[in-house]
Design a protein around this nucleic acid. Structure first.
Lengths: 228, 228
DNA sequence: CGGGTACTTGACAATGGTCAAGTGTGGTGG
DNA sequence: CCACCACACTTGACCATTGTCAAGTACCCG
């Protein structure tokens, strides 16, 4: 079984001893989800958390009318649903597989016991939660203080840095999902992309985006410039 | 010196031994801020975090145009600016004293050392960060998926529960600051309060709010009902 | 009592969401 | 291999929510 080896690769569990990995491997349970399966629901009792092994998962909230706001896209190696392990005890949002996905589920009680004996896991977990907080701070800033074109510009610049091919990259999600990340709807996103194309800021072909005028995008994202 | 005794009262440091409190007391530095003093600024290097001893502090972001979104109001006993201790190393927002305030500042390095030797502090810190994440989740949900009347209704119901006098309480902040918590501006807040008064949902007198129709407010906050 | 700040109210504008219709496009089955 | 269906996306017309600007009122502190 290579579960243990895999666990050793997870950033959250970097630097642990063989013995600790052994224990983690003992308490971790493999789970499989098909595309668009629900992993957990908002308000559901949480008796542990997942680490994504393969595939992708979106964490999101739903409005009364059914609109969706994506809080986070989880990629392989990242934990999710970990906050209720330490406080609240209920999942604070929905989680759904964007593709067929595999996770390792760590039940709460044995995991907490493990942490109590090892500050390193705790420190790693603190780092991850802190990172999440920082991202949420940005998300709140974007939603409350920036308009959709600014948010989109920032997203494109950020993606352009992360993906290969600094100014010519492929969206790794559907445009509708991107809208949901940016806190808007597909129609609005579509219109703004058109405007950006008209102003020669970007070029769009399906899911491929080419950044033509990075300077302009940066001005947009900071708010110096507006997308008339 | 009663610093040590005070530290023992802080929720974050509950359950520690005398010796640990001693150490914390050794590394903690007293700070004083006058009303509207800046405690730290967005992007500033963080070499530690504060615990608020007295007064109140707001944590907030600013837009390009200068609009303010409050992320959190810190009350006595709560830590703030703790995330960059574990990740990022820069404060992710502004902090400003709402009143004359006193804090204890814990420098990063000795604090981390302390944590490495004591899982209990780590667990408490994990609980606090998790709690923050949950609150941020709600904040994102409110900003992105709810309209201002819904947010206000939820806020009033929540405050009504927390404060004494379940349905007749005093706002502990200026209305302009409340607007900034709700992600809007004073003018909009003012109008919505008027509408709520007209519909006999609440009564307002200066900073005193009386909840007349809790059921109606609940329907509003959930989205079943709209504020025509 | 005076002055500044907080708050309110009105008229207006614009961002962005809703509804509706149309245009691909990819995947499946005949 | 092609046809078709479903679904993602686009585009247009409309309108609600909410932010901006401006003016006026109330209130608190000195």
């Amino acid at each position: 079984m290579d579960k243990k080896n895999y666990i050793g690769e997870i950033p959250l569990f970097k630097g642990l001893t063989e013995k600790q990995l052994e224990k983690l491997s003992d308490i971790g349970l493999n789970c499989a989800f098909k595309k668009s399966d629900t992993v957990f629901s908002d308000g559901e009792d949480a008796d542990g958390f997942h680490v994504l092994q393969s595939g992708r998962v979106k964490i999101f909230k739903l409005s009364y009318e059914g609109r969706e706001q994506i809080l986070h896209i989880i990629n392989a190696g990242e934990p999710f649903g970990e906050a209720p392990v330490f406080a609240g005890e209920k999942f604070p949002a929905y989680a759904e597989a964007l593709e067929d996905s595999g996770t390792i589920f760590f039940p709460r009680a044995p995991f907490i016991e493990l942490i109590n004996n090892d500050p390193l896991i705790a420190m790693n977990m603190l780092a991850i939660l802190s990172q999440r907080l920082k991202r949420f701070t940005q998300l709140v800033e974007n939603l409350s203080l920036k308009e959709v074109p600014q948010r989109l510009a920032a997203y494109l610049l950020y993606s352009g840095e992360v993906e290969e091919g600094h100014d010519n990259f492929e969206l790794n999600i559907a445009k509708g999902q991107l809208a949901s990340i940016l806190g808007t709807i597909p129609e609005t996103l579509s219109r703004i992309l058109s405007k950006m194309v008209n102003q020669d800021l970007i070029r769009v072909q399906g899911r491929t985006i080419k950044l033509i005028n990075k300077k302009g995008l940066e001005e947009l994202s900071s708010g110096e410039r507006v997308l008339a």
